[in-house]
Structure formats: C-alpha cells, structure tokens
C-alpha cells in the first residue's frame, strides 16, 4: 500500500504538504464552515488547521484509524478552541438548518471513510431525539446547556442522550479507549 499524504509529509516529502490541501481542503473547509461564526472566521480557522495538520502529520498512525478521522479530529479541536475564545453566540448554522445536515447514506459513506459509515449506522440506531442532540452538539457546536434550552429538555437528559449516543458510535467504531493511543 502506498503511503498516505500524511505519512509522506512526516517523511519529509515537500510536495505532499501542498497535496494535503488538494486532498483534504474541501473536508477541512466544510468542517470549518459549520463550526465558525462567519466565513472570515472559517478561512482563518482553515489556515490554522492546515498548519496543525502539517505539524502533526508524524503522529498519524494508519493502524489506529483513517487519515480523514485524524484530520477531522485535528480540525474539530482547533474549531472548538476558536469557538470557546469568542462570545457565546452559536456558529453560523442556525438550529433551523438541521434538516440541511447531509447525513451520508451508509452505503455510500464508505467513500468518505469506514468510520463515517460506522458512525452513520450507529446514529440510525438512536432515537430521533438522541440523534438531534448529537447533531446540535457535534455538528453545530452548541453547548449542552444551549441544546437543553433550545429543545426544552432538562440538562441531565441532554447529557444522557449525548453520552449514550457517543457510546453507541464508539461501539460501532470498536474504539476501546485504552487502545487509542495519543494520536493528535
């Protein structure tokens, strides 16, 4: 199997640094758009995320998961840190836009990554209200208090839905915490 772009960056291949933009640019930009307040914020965040990716490429371990999950983990960390820095306003996607969330079909999600397909299958096993809590928290960057307020649910219920939902996803990913090394 040929080395991934991340592995080539880690091994010092200069051309791979730019190829990384071609390969993951749309993914990072899409994540940044969703978890940023303005397009300008999303552009700044995308630049920061790529710097993080290049610096962290040596930590990518293909045995632990796909390159896309690694990229998404780095991106989410940076984006959530940026959200915390600013006001408590939610990012630009309003709750009403939930219907616009483009859930992958499990049959085609494998084109994105195996983990995306597994996550999709896990989400399909959740009750609609559980799934909505995960969407608001993971995709729209709302805090659990904000989710509780918007959905009119007790905070404890929101936390319970979030916890059970993530546990379900972990089961489908077969992620046993002790086996997940310090990857990012």
């Amino acid at each position: 199997m040929s080395p991934s772009v991340l592995q080539r960056i880690a091994s010092g291949e200069a051309a791979a640094v730019r190829e990384c933009i071609d390969e993951y640019g749309a993914l990072v930009w899409s994540l940044a758009r969703r978890l940023s307040r303005t397009p300008s914020d999303a552009e700044d965040a995308t630049q920061e995320i790529f710097l993080d990716i290049w610096r962290s490429a040596a930590r990518f371990d293909a045995a632990q998961g796909s390159d896309k999950v690694f990229i998404a983990m780095i991106a989410r960390r940076r984006l959530i840190d940026r959200l915390r820095k600013t006001t408590n306003e939610p990012p630009m996607d309003p709750v009403e836009a939930l219907e616009a969330v483009a859930w992958s079909d499990p049959g085609t999600a494998s084109e994105t990554s195996l983990e995306a397909e597994q996550a999709m299958r896990a989400l399909q096993e959740l009750r609609p209200e559980q799934r909505q809590v995960l969407e608001l928290g993971l995709l729209h960057g709302l805090s659990q208090s904000e989710i509780a307020s918007r959905l009119g649910l007790p905070l404890g219920t929101v936390k319970s839905f979030m916890r059970r939902g993530l546990i379900k996803v972990r089961e489908f990913l077969n992620v046993d915490a002790p086996s997940v090394s310090e990857r990012v």
């Binding site: 983990m73 483009a102 992958s104 983990e115 597994q118 996550a119 993971l138 995709l139 972990r170």
Partner: peptide, 14 residues
C-alpha cells in the same frame, strides 16, 4: 481520544 474519534466520525458522516 476515543470520544474525539467518535465525534470526528460523526462529523465525517454528516
């Protein structure tokens, strides 16, 4: 890490 991995996978799926 495991939670982040699950959250990242959900993000990818959507």
């Amino acid at each position: 890490q495991a939670i982040e991995q699950a959250a990242a996978a959900v993000s990818l799926a959507a």
